[in-house]
Every structure is written in C-alpha cells, then in structure tokens.
Amino acid sequence: MTTTTYRNPTTIARIVVALVGVGCLLLTVQGAVQATGRGAALMSDREHDLPALQHQVDLETLWGQFVEQVPTGSRISLTPARANRDLWRQRLSELAVLHGCVVVEGAPRDYTVGVASVQRKRPTSAGVRLVVRKVD
C-alpha cells in the first residue's frame, strides 16, 4: 500500500521564503566581507592601495607647506595646476579653509598658491610641492 504525502502550501512558501530571503541577505552581506578582507590587507600592508596612500602623502605634504608659507587669514587666489586641475583646485581650496584663508577669484589678493609636480624619490614620498608667490 502506498501513501501520498501532501505538503501544506504554507510550508512550501516558508521554505522558499527562507531560502530566497537568506540568499538575498547573504548577497547584501557580501560587501561587509569584502570590506573586512580589504581592511585587513590595508592594516597589514600600508602600501596595499598605493595610489590612495600617495594621494594622502601628497595632501599632507601640501598641508604642511601651506601652514608654513601662508599666514592665517590671507587672501589667496589659486593657480591652475597643469595636471589634475579640478582635483588640486578643490584640495587647495580645502587647505585654505582649514587654515582660515579666504579664496578669492580676482584682486585684491595677498598670495597666489598652486601645485607643481615633482619626481617621487620613493613610491611613498610626495609627488607634489606647493608653489606660493606673494603678491605685491
């Protein structure tokens, strides 16, 4: 004698909802797994993301030179860089704000400030320097 087992539709729905739901949630958690792996790599190897590190080094170098060479409260105008014009205009504007300087687009101004590229001595040394000129 054979017996036929009928599954309740609700039970089947529960199984499908659980499987598809958990699968989708695992898809969304994947990013956290990747972030963990990348973060661990960055922690153990400072140069894991070399372009990002170089940008940070460049910016910190420019910040140090900005603080040294441009007095707080100065009116400055920005000289367009030869390469990465938008990047350096925005970063110099940021440094000016952090140092309490006023960015002006014409006269009167106290300094012109720009960025020049330099050869990196090492992969993690600065590839830029600040060019500051006092306006008489």
């Binding site: 956290a32 797994v33 972030a35 990348r38 973060g39 661990a40 922690m43 993301d49 990002a52 590190l53």
Partner: peptide
C-alpha cells in the same frame, strides 16, 4: 571587522 577599512588612507 568591516570597520578595518578605517586603515584606508
């Protein structure tokens, strides 16, 4: 663990 990304420059 995913906050280890704080080591990113």
């Amino acid at each position: 663990p995913p906050c280890l990304m704080i080591f990113e420059p």
